[in-house]
Computed example of a mutant assay.
Amino acid sequence: MLNSGRLRLLALLDTLGTVRAVADTLHLSPSTVSQQLAVLETETRCRLMERAGRRVRLTPAGLLLARRGREILDKMAEAEAELRALNGEPIGIVRLGAFQSAIFTLAVPAAERLAVTHPHLHLELTELEPHESGSALRSGEADAIVTTTDYTGLSWGADLDVVPLGSDPVVLVLPRGHPLASRTSVNLTACAEETWACDRPQSYMADLTLRLCRESGFEPRVACRFSNYLMLLRHVGSTGSIALLPALAVTPDHAVVTRPLDPPVNRNVAAVLRRSTPRRAAVNAVIAALRERAQAPILAEPREDASEP
């Protein structure tokens, strides 16, 4: 008889590629993961893995079981939710991954509303940037993600359902009193001599900043790299650096001003699910709450420099 926990380990191995990555994800030791996978081979009477140098890879039987295993695990979750929700009320845990600037503007307000409307539904939030969330979704670590469909690192295949939430402008963030703050919009060619504050390398915003600067004819001179937008905004406000950020990330409590780009740059925000994930009542309720919140006027508007008359 197949064990759901061991099926999950095999499915994660297919997605993440190494036993150590599976162990790190589940906070287990690599030896424990290897032992459980060996038990699964005994249970199925099939060779599921083979050595490839120092790593292991799945055999054709292993690949088949890993992919069927995801379907089985999804169906089990669906059955459990249906049994616990015979009264039709959304119930259970929904794991939502969202990029940093969407956590407090979209996800947390949705969670607060759901706590009132559906008190037996628990929304579990995880910060996942666009370059991280796709693998979490496909591995089953997240039931849904809020991401940007402009991120080219995720393959937008037929296995995913995309629910548009809206468009979020990318803005230039400047310290108060900066000369460029006198403009209504800014072409990045005017920023070639500036010092930049950026996100981590290979992240969505770091790659976007680099691409836009190069298209404007220069390499950005980077003073800092912070994955935390709060620290990045403080760096801009206190040191005179500048940055590109999504408008959702810029809150009014920082000593910065924002200006639209010329030409404008927008990112398309969406909720994404695996097509094989059962659209159980709890997941549907979360998506509905996100769509309702996205319709509110939550985007940061370009603000005037407080020092200007």
Rank of each mutant, 00 (worst) to 15 (best):
L261F: 06
C224Q: 06
L290D: 03
L208F: 07
P169Y: 02
L73A: 07
S227R: 15
A255D: 14
L128H: 12
P220Y: 01
E219W: 13
A296H: 15
P169H: 07
L180Q: 03
A190K: 05
L37H: 02
P252I: 07
E304S: 15
H178R: 01
L106F: 04
A249G: 07
E89S: 09
S133K: 05
G5H: 11
A192H: 06
A158M: 12
S276K: 04
V19H: 14
A192E: 13
T189A: 15
E89C: 09
E194K: 01
T105N: 13
D305I: 03
L7D: 00
Y229P: 12
G17L: 09
T15M: 15
N284V: 15
G69L: 01
S216P: 03
T59N: 00
V256K: 03
H178Q: 04
A98V: 11
R20C: 10
S238F: 07
D161V: 04
V173L: 03
S155W: 15
G157R: 05
D150Q: 04
E132W: 09
D14T: 03
L212N: 01
G92Y: 03
E127C: 15
V171A: 13
R225L: 05
P175C: 01
L58P: 00
V146P: 08
P302Y: 15
T59S: 00
L9A: 01
I287A: 04
G153A: 00
A300F: 02
V22F: 09
C46M: 04
S307F: 12
L114H: 04
P60E: 00
R68G: 03
L48H: 01
V33P: 04
A98D: 15
A289M: 07
C213M: 02
T184G: 08
